[in-house]
Write a protein that binds this DNA or RNA. Structure first.
Length: 651
RNA sequence: GCCACCCUAGCUCAGUCGGUAGAGCAGCGCAUUCGUAAUGCGCCGGUCGUCGGUUCAAAUCCGUCGGGUGGCUCCA
């Protein structure tokens, strides 16, 4: 999700008066596809240095698309009355949506696990038949006749026949050709391309994965369809590699690792959904992360502010939140006849800090930063661990500057953001510039200047970027930064957004050198985005094997017998004095068990202390990786560990 | 919110055709003093998520509510 225009959630997230952070896991490789699409639709606006390797993409695209058709055939054979909707290839696979009608009791007819098994079995038979894919082009009238009993197809044809727009109302370049593809007994409305015949679908390269409810065109006002997800690859080996990747992702799931390492928990029944309890070890990591980020902010010219958790309704009326964002806000609290709202965003408070005094151009740029905890209503079905929650803390800042300062300020904040993300171990970035949408506020000159500044900053960054034309919020253009994690998954973290709206609403001014009042530029930015979500992403990126500087317990001292407990305690005291976070395991376990426990807790350094070490006054160092550094003087180990901390390395 | 699947001890799970509950880990106790991923023995621990129905009998079958997981346009 995260960032596509068609995502209703992110649409209301961005259609706000203030900084919005997409909390979603951005499992959205559509970005790449979307760019291609934008390019064809709007004449090559997209500039991206991450090249599509077309041939490969085409092969997978054809295999997945064709497998979807084969699946639809198998479904139709088993459920002859099924209505078929759409069945596109997607990242790593495909899906197809079906309407199976209703059962006698009025409930939706759905696929059972047995259905899936049988469908998959039948698919292999169809594939073995080596049926060719036949394309034919037909008129809208012919298409309507062909799909007379298929309401969803008729809906699609209507969109195509209307011309100029596709089924989502997006403009389509060029003339629209209506075509079908047929294999064996199954003919589907489709623009292709497909493989030549079903024999080109590797029978051991695909697998059905899951069934899910999905609304027609993603709109909950529409009928709910039954979607079958599948995956398809060129051969068995690739399929297995993909399944292994899914398993690896399960192993790294931040909810699983968070429990194993005792970092955080949630409790829907007693606390509430989407609300995080940070346990001591998780809280320590959060403290370390924030401490580092805050030092960077102070060095980067930011001023810290603190603002309340609630504010009077007039504040949210002024900001526009009560008009446009009420759905996302919690119900008001009544105090002394006044309504107070829990804050969904920090910006209105920051604007009031700006307004609390007459501002001179000499005060600018003013950079107000706050780790501000906000509360937003999210539908219960969308909540997910730490990455989609109802209460979260933004590393939020608002930059106010004079027009002439703006380009430099953009450069600075972009570089700052990337520096911070790099410090947390991310090295692969994709940047997106979202430009002016049709409905917008602010003068054209403001948009021109802001978009140009953002684009220049992107160019100077030297990193891959792309443009999403028309994808900006109505109040200003923005840059979003996606990082790619260790499992090649993109996540939207940082966002840098112009706002031409709030300075107007709050009537912000400063006195320029000409003695006149001027309106400042205002930029929202969050780098981690939501601290909770960022933490979830970090857990999955590292799979719990955190870099030494962030890990809650850095050193476990392991005396082999209790003869060494005294020496171990003395070692631990010296390590603590050196600033290391250390624990001693002086329990009854054998050394092997102590090592195993430390290993399971993913503690980077284990210092094994036996009689030899005591005699030599040294420590024997084992790493989390299983590597052994051997015996060394304590001072040498401290130097090693401190270097790992300073360099933020993962050992 | 909607669709599917799931809910058994603190955790991970087993429990056959319906005959009234088991293991490992964790915790606690005792013994053990050990050289790089689990020492042994014992003890404690569950009205099988909730409420209701069917039945001589329900963890098991049916319904209900609660909770969890995946999904709800990655464009015919």
């Amino acid at each position: 999700m995260g960032g596509t225009t068609h995502d209703p959630a992110s649409q209301w997230m961005t259609g706000l008066f203030c900084l919005s952070i997409s909390q979603h896991l951005s499992s959205d490789p559509s970005l790449q596809q979307k760019n291609t699409h934008s390019q064809s639709a709007s004449g090559g606006v997209v500039m991206s240095s991450s090249a599509n390797n077309g041939q490969q993409y085409d092969d997978y695209y054809k295999i997945r698309h064709s497998t979807a058709h084969v699946m639809a055939q198998a479904v139709i054979e088993r459920f002859p009355d099924a209505k078929i909707a759409i069945g596109p290839p997607i990242k790593d696979g495909f899906y197809y949506d079906f309407d199976l009608g209703r059962l006698a009791d009025g409930s939706l007819r759905t696929f059972t696990p047995e259905d899936l098994q049988e469908i998959e079995k039948r698919m292999r038979q169809i594939v073995a038949g080596r049926h060719p894919f036949h394309k034919r082009v037909l008129s809208a009238a012919e298409a309507r006749a062909l799909f007379a009993g298929q309401p969803y197809k008729l809906d699609l044809i209507a969109g195509l026949a209307a011309g100029g727009v596709d089924e989502y109302g997006e403009p389509v370049a060029g003339a629209v050709e209506i075509s079908t593809y047929r294999q064996d007994s199954f003919e589907d409305l489709c623009r292709g391309p497909h493989v030549e015949h079903t024999g080109q679908i590797p029978p051991d390269g695909f697998q059905l994965l899951s069934v899910a409810g999905a609304y027609w065109r993603g709109d909950e006002h529409n009928p709910m369809l039954q979607r079958i997800y599948g995956t398809a690859w060129k051969n068995k080996k690739e399929l297995q590699a993909y399944l292994d990747r899914l398993e690896e992702a399960r192993q790294r799931d931040h909810r699983k690792v968070g429990k194993e390492l005792d970092l955080f928990s949630t409790n829907h029944e007693m606390i509430g959904g989407g609300l995080i309890l940070w346990h001591p070890k998780g809280a320590l990591m959060r403290h370390l992360a924030e401490e580092h980020a805050k030092k960077m902010h102070l060095a980067g010219g930011y001023d810290f502010v603190y603002t309340p958790h609630i504010g009077r309704s007039v504040l949210w009326e002024t900001s526009g939140h009560l008009d446009f964002y009420k759905e996302g806000m919690y119900a008001p609290i009544e105090i002394e006849g006044q309504s107070y709202y829990l804050k969904p965003m920090n910006c209105p408070f920051h604007l009031h800090i700006f307004k609390s005094n007459v501002r001179s151009y000499r005060d600018l740029p003013m950079r107000l930063a706050e780790w501000g905890t906000v509360y937003r209503f999210e539908r219960s079905g969308t909540l997910h661990g730490m990455t989609r929650v109802r209460g979260f803390t933004q590393d939020d800042a608002h930059l106010f500057c004079a027009p002439e300062q703006m380009p430099a300020e953009i450069d600075k904040v972009l570089a700052f953001s990337l520096d911070l993300l790099r410090d947390f171990g991310f090295s692969r970035f994709d940047l997106y510039l979202s430009t002016r949408p049709a409905k917008r506020v602010g003068e054209e000159a403001l948009w021109d200047a802001a978009e140009a500044a953002l684009l220049d900053a992107l160019k100077r960054s030297g990193l891959p970027y792309a443009i999403h034309p028309g994808d900006g919020a109505f109040y200003g253009p923005k840059i979003d930064i996606y990082v790619t994690d260790a499992l090649d998954r993109p996540w939207q973290l940082s966002t840098i957004q112009f706002d031409f709206n709030l300075p107007e609403r709050f009537d912000l001014t400063y006195i320029a050198a000409d003695g006149q009042q001027h309106r400042p530029y205002m930029i929202h930015r969050a780098l981690m985005g939501s601290v909770e979500r960022f933490f979830g992403v970090l857990i999955e990126h590292y799979g719990g094997n955190f870099p030494v500087w962030l890990t809650p317990v850095q050193v476990k001292v392991i005396p082999i017998t209790d003869e060494q407990n005294g020496f171990a305690a003395a070692i631990a005291a010296q390590l603590a004095d050196a600033g290391l976070r250390v624990e001693v395991d002086d329990g009854d376990d054998r050394m092997n068990a102590k090592i195993r426990n430390a290993q399971l807790q993913k503690i980077p350094y284990m210092l094994v202390i036996g009689a030899r070490e005591v005699e030599e006054g040294a420590v024997n160092v084992r790493l989390r990786s299983g590597d052994r550094l051997g015996t060394m003087p304590l001072a040498a180990f401290i130097a090693h560990a401190q270097a790992a901390i300073v360099n933020r390395t993962v050992i």
